[in-house]
């Protein structure tokens, strides 16, 4: 058995790596990340400029592109706005009331994330379509849901819900109950306690969940295309337009949409991580005081 000498240990501590294998494991990690993430994304970043700037500018003169982006962004935003109160309700009930079957409820919330998007797509299209369980109820009232923008919102609401619930839940769980009790004893009404005490605490996780759901929503494809109807300028989402452009072998058109979507999603994520950091540093300060 080889025992490392004291000097060897000391020198490795100076490099702050007491454990062996740093270069091996870093090398493996860099190889894995480099080949599978950095390389393909570099291609996406460089490709549009390969033939100069004019094809890219040409690709941006496209009313259908802006229509698709507008549809994706508005529908994703609407879905998030619907998900926020529902997510808050689910997280609240799960954490505070723990009703019968709360474990099953808790597991079910992850299903939209676990079920393949194409499966979600055909299920929602059938459910809300003309002969479906919900479609056949809503259509006689003149409320057409499938194959309209409303269908896109429905699909994105399904997809986004777990993001909202899972960001609020931990904060709600760790929220000190005595603060609310104190407010109650001081005569605050239920609404005041919710509005003045809980909502300010929950705003950062609500926003970060909304950011994640929105970023996911603008890129969503599988669950949307079956229920959307996919008419250009009406129900064609941006990811679908990328696929259309690829089928026309219009790589410049496809990459320009892809870059816009990617940058928007990344900005959302940067905002979310900023928010998380400010929230956690806020908590540290509270604990330290």
């Amino acid at each position: 058995m080889k025992v490392p000498s004291v000097t060897a240990l000391r020198s490795s501590q100076n490099r702050r790596h007491a454990l062996p294998g740093f270069s091996l494991s870093l090398g493996l990690t860099l190889l894995w990340t480099g080949l599978l993430v950095v390389l393909p994304l570099t291609a996406l970043l460089l490709r549009p400029w390969q033939h100069g700037i004019s094809p890219m500018i040409h690709a941006l003169y496209d009313a259908r592109l802006y229509a698709a982006l507008r549809i994706s962004f508005t529908c994703a935003l609407l879905a998030v706005l619907i998900d926020l109160p529902i997510g808050l309700l689910l997280a609240w009930t799960l954490v505070r009331y723990r009703p019968p079957g709360h474990r099953v409820l808790d597991a079910m919330i992850d299903l939209p994330f676990a079920i393949p998007t194409a499966v979600t797509g055909i299920a929602l299209a059938t459910l809300y379509g003309p002969g479906g369980w919900i479609g056949s109820l809503s259509n006689p009232w003149g409320l057409k849901l499938a194959f309209t923008p409303a269908g896109i919102v429905i699909a994105l609401t399904f997809i986004g819900l777990p993001f909202i619930v899972r960001s609020i839940e931990p904060v709600l769980r760790s929220f000190p109950k005595d603060v609310e009790e104190a407010a109650f004893l001081l005569g605050a009404s239920a609404w005041q306690r919710f509005h003045r005490i809980l909502l300010p605490t929950l705003t950062p996780p609500l926003l970060s969940g909304a950011g994640l759901a929105f970023a996911r929503g603008i890129g969503e494809y599988g669950s949307v295309i079956f229920i959307a109807g996919n008419q250009p300028f009406h129900t064609e989402v941006a990811p679908l337009l990328i696929v259309m452009r690829l089928q026309e072998y219009n790589y410049d058109g496809a990459t320009s949409i892809a870059l816009i979507l990617l940058v928007t999603a990344l900005l959302c994520l940067v905002a979310v991580s900023r928010l998380r950091r400010s929230v956690s540093s806020g908590l540290v300060r509270e604990d330290g005081a």
């Binding site: 993430v37 393909p40 969503e220 599988g222 990328i242 892809a258």
Partner: peptide, 24 residues
């Protein structure tokens, strides 16, 4: 970098490989 793929649209995740290995 490791977390990046989560925020990339699935369609883009396919597109990037076409840019490397596709006909064009």
């Amino acid at each position: 970098l490791i977390e990046l793929p989560i925020s990339v649209s699935p369609v883009i995740a396919g597109l990037v490989w076409l840019l490397l290995f596709g006909r064009q």
